Computed example of a mutant assay.
Amino acid sequence: MEMNGVTASPGAGAAAEEGPYTVDKAALRKRLTPLQYQVTQEKGTERAFTGRFNKHREPGLYRCLVCGQAIFSSATKYDSGSGWPSFYDVIDAKRVKLKSDLSHGMERTEVSCARCSAHLGHVFKDGPKPTGKRYCVNSESLQFERDDSIDVPDGPLEFFRGSCAGGSCSARAALRPTPPRPAGAGAAISRVVDKYNRLEGSASGPAAPPGTKGLPEKAITGQIQGGQVLNGRA
């Protein structure tokens, strides 16, 4: 398997995820790109809409880039409109670790690989049925293994009432009208855009100057309800 690449050879992935895995940080720095290392080992984040798996629609498995464990399937992948690869379920709950993340003034739940502790992204409660979850994952933390026996869902997804507040999920709009934007949300959205661009340790490179829209405003619009950020970085 090409641990650093997009596609793994058939059958190699299963062997790669067996048994314990010890992370050798020095070897990992040589094997991964700087961005991949920053995302998986330093909890960085790629910029929205830049990841190679954001719009990826092939059938197969999405494995942890570091240890090769299969974590997500194309059968539960969907376009959330957030700018990061999104899944509404994991292959097995035991393959991920969930941890509260209060960094950057946001209340989120971090998702990491249970086998090697690589940072994958975050999970939110605004996904489609049947789970209502959205695993918002960095492309730079994943590798893909094609498997034509796995489904690739097509067509609209059904969301729980009240989820995807303000239109943060693209499939939501056809189900019910978009609620009115809360009073003062325009200024709040601009503040969040600027804050995202100034976050220290961003895997996208140096901080952007105030007012620069590194993240498109449409990716932030509707993510604030009553002053709470619902859809943070991956």
Rank of each mutant, 00 (worst) to 15 (best):
E2V: 13
G60N: 03
D92A: 15
A12Y: 08
A8T: 08
T109V: 13
V90C: 12
S163H: 13
E110L: 05
A8E: 10
S9D: 14
A93V: 08
Q228H: 15
T33S: 11
H104K: 08
P156C: 03
A207H: 11
E217I: 12
S149H: 07
K25F: 06
R134P: 00
E17T: 00
E58F: 02
A48P: 04
S190M: 13
Y62T: 04
S139V: 07
V23F: 01
H56M: 12
K133Y: 10
K99Q: 07
S80E: 09
G227I: 08
A207D: 14
M3P: 08
D79M: 00
A173Y: 01
A173G: 08
P34L: 02
R57H: 14
D101V: 04
K77Q: 12
G186T: 15
Y135H: 11
L230P: 00
Q36R: 02
S74D: 10
G81E: 00
A75F: 00
A48R: 04
L120F: 04
A187Q: 13
A70G: 12
T40H: 10
A207W: 15
G11R: 03
T221C: 05
G222H: 03
N54P: 02
C113H: 03
R115S: 03
L98S: 09
G232T: 06
T50M: 07
G19Y: 00
R108H: 04
G214H: 13
G205Y: 01
G186Y: 10
G60D: 02
E46P: 05
P130G: 06
Q38P: 00
V6I: 12
G201M: 06
K133S: 09
I189F: 10
S74P: 12
Q228D: 10
K125T: 07
F160G: 14
E2P: 12
A207E: 14
L28T: 08
A219R: 15
E217R: 14
C169L: 11
P130H: 05
E158D: 13
G184V: 13
P209L: 11
L230E: 07
T33P: 00
L215A: 14
P156F: 00
W84N: 06
E42V: 09
R47L: 14
N197R: 15
D151W: 07
G205V: 09
R172K: 09
A171M: 01
R63G: 11
K213N: 01
D194S: 15
F53D: 06
F87E: 01
H104M: 10
V192E: 15
G232L: 01
E110T: 06
